[in-house]
């Protein structure tokens, strides 16, 4: 049963990867990479159960954190396009 879940995750990863490669805008790519990160997390967890080593979950937890920070950072970088913000500060928060 874990094998079926693993196969499904891998197939989804393939679809998401196609979207990341095709684009067309940079935001499609970021979105696809974010989904790819979530899928990697699921894959690590399921593979841990498949091989009978649930310790893999710690790695999945850390991966979730890195995926979150990474997506936010890339979104901000693309939006502000470099080191200093070009957009004047508004009240809408910073993310």
């Amino acid at each position: 049963m874990f094998v079926a879940a693993t196969a499904a995750v891998l197939m989804t990863m393939l679809l998401v990867l196609v979207r990341a490669l095709k684009g067309p805008t940079v935001y499609d790519r970021i979105l696809a990479v974010n989904s790819f990160g979530t899928l990697t997390m699921v894959l690590i967890a399921v593979y841990g159960f498949l091989s009978g080593r649930p310790e893999f979950l710690d790695i999945a937890l850390v991966y979730a954190l890195i995926n979150f920070i990474g997506t936010i950072a890339v979104s901000k970088f693309v939006k502000f396009g470099g080191h200093e913000p070009k957009v004047s500060h508004t009240d809408q928060g910073d993310i």
Binding site: Y27, N34, F68, I72, S75, K79
Partner: peptide, 14 residues
């Protein structure tokens, strides 16, 4: 939701 919102706002700002 946070990442989705950040991405949507980045896309909108562009």
């Amino acid at each position: 939701p946070t990442t989705t919102h950040a991405l949507a706002r980045a896309a909108q700002a562009e």
